[in-house]
Design a binder for these strands. Sequence first.
DNA 1: TTATCACCTGAACAATTATTCAATTAAACA
DNA 2: TGTTTAATTGAATAATTGTTCAGGTGATAA
Lengths: 123, 123
Amino acid sequence: MITVELVRGTQHRHAIDPETVQRVKKRMKPEKTMTLLAETFRTLGDPTRAAILYALVHGELCVCDLAEIVGISESAISHHLRVLRNLRLVNYRRQGRKVCYSLADDHIRTLLAQGLQHVEERL
Amino acid sequence: MITVELVRGTQHRHAIDPETVQRVKKRMKPEKTMTLLAETFRTLGDPTRAAILYALVHGELCVCDLAEIVGISESAISHHLRVLRNLRLVNYRRQGRKVCYSLADDHIRTLLAQGLQHVEERL
DNA sequence: TTATCACCTGAACAATTATTCAATTAAACA
DNA sequence: TGTTTAATTGAATAATTGTTCAGGTGATAA
């Protein structure tokens, strides 16, 4: 009667197919990888940051031009740029009193293009 | 003295290059598109949902198997699956009392692969 | 029918996060 | 030097969001 009960201590899930679960579990990526993956997507997942990155697709831009283009305060832009810097999604360099930002690599360009292609199909 | 003052009513940003701003602004996508793009990325940007989707890369799975693979309660999984359904990132079908989920299309597969490629390069 | 199972949903809580405001840094000019 | 400008930062607030818990569907089996 109580045969599958021992599989999990927490809940009763008799319907689990252990074979399928094992097969898929083996192919899963390490947690560290998935965390970083999610972190990267989440960083792209803010409307302001998405706009910043898409603006940078067209070339290097300084902070105040970015603020004007995206339509948000310089302070807010700065906070977002720090997030993008931390995830290595953008590069930056000083030029006089200005600071110019650009996309870190073509991978981000590709991701944006892929994402856009996906959403533009449904609209 | 007060020449550029009129450009914006809100703040004093004299450093803005109107030419550059105009050029980039023209190329920006409509807000609706960017919102949907950000929404899509944000949906991928949760560790649990990223794990769900990556598990589904290997084939169709029912809810309880998904819960076991990802290591989270069925309730939590269900909430996440609703989010994924709303964004049309997954398909589902009933089979008996079970409900089986699968990736909506190859676009998501590509996005995941691209994202993974990106993060695995830095690790 | 009644009972059980697989899954879904609403409410509530905890945690995260985007923005604003004020103060600060770094560079250029008088 | 002192002043102005472009950008950054920290603190505080408001809003969003993931998870748990309890209850509720819809489908199968007794």
